[in-house]
């Protein structure tokens, strides 16, 4: 069971984040002397008027006001979601897993918005189960599917192993999720395989999308993949034979 290990890594990741922010401030040339109050670090980036010194911010931990649940009201649902994403993209020697990357908060925010509400989907009936080639035909939106699916994970965990999902060991968690992946679990209005595909999609999106959405914390998902983010030009390096590693930037410091 590597849950504790993962929590430790999360802390490490927060420390890394702090370090990297300092580096950013340094690199961006914003350090010109002056004083800054606690809690303002998040607002520094992009604020040209800030005149703090590097030392002023070293011991501050930036509170992240965006890490609060907006879609999942029940604590247990969010915990099951979190451990599910961690099993999909676990912490390992390559770097942080889904939890440390902020994936659960990313998915929570996405479910509260257009994606979760199927704003851009055609949602008129009749809803008929078609052939395999005819694609998704559910009357449920993704938010409804996630709530139903997550609670079913809890139910299956209790039935199969007598405990809640987060208390199962890693192998048991994988076993439960594999049943969903294989479409063996009955859900109403959607297949459990479809639900599981959404979990995989949401996890990869949370790990590798621009950090502006709340995942890919500190761009560590991009670092693992050696992806440099939204660079403005590669015209001078694209012809080269060797791999060109660049530290990533995000849309918050693009332009």
């Amino acid at each position: 069971m590597d849950k504790n290990n993962s929590e430790k890594q999360t802390t490490q990741s927060n420390q890394k984040e702090e370090i990297s922010r300092r580096n950013f401030i340094k690199k961006a040339g914003l350090v010109t002397g002056g004083i800054i109050g606690s809690g303002l670090i998040g607002g520094i980036i992009g604020n040209q008027w800030w005149t703090g010194t590097e030392n002023d911010v070293v011991n501050e931990t930036a509170p992240d006001f965006s890490e609060a649940r907006v879609f999942f009201n029940r604590r247990e649902d969010f915990s099951v979601l979190s451990w599910t994403t961690e099993r999909i993209l676990p912490e390992d020697d390559n770097g942080p897993g889904a939890i440390a990357l902020g994936v659960p908060y990313f998915i929570d925010k996405q479910l509260a918005g257009a994606w979760g509400n199927n704003t851009d989907e055609y949602m008129k009936g009749p809803f008929i189960e078609g052939e395999d080639t005819q694609g998704f035909q559910s009357a449920l939106n993704r938010g409804e599917i996630f709530i139903q699916g997550i609670r079913k994970i809890t139910e299956v965990s209790k039935n199969e192993f007598g405990d809640s999902f987060e208390e199962l060991d890693e192998e048991q968690q994988i076993e439960v999720l594999t049943m969903f992946e294989n479409g063996e679990i009955e859900l109403q209005g959607v297949g459990s395989d479809t639900f599981f595909n959404m979990l995989i999609q949401g996890t990869l999106e949370g790990a590798y999308s621009d950090p502006l959405y709340g995942g890919n914390r500190n761009m560590d998902g991009w670092r693992m993949k050696e992806y440099p983010g939204p660079q403005s030009s590669y015209i001078n390096v694209i012809e080269k034979e060797e791999f060109n590693f660049m530290d990533p930037i995000s849309l918050s410091n693009y332009n």
Partner: peptide
Amino acid sequence: DSQALPIREPEN
């Protein structure tokens, strides 16, 4: 001879 169904998701 089969019934057509709507393409519901924008990614498709």
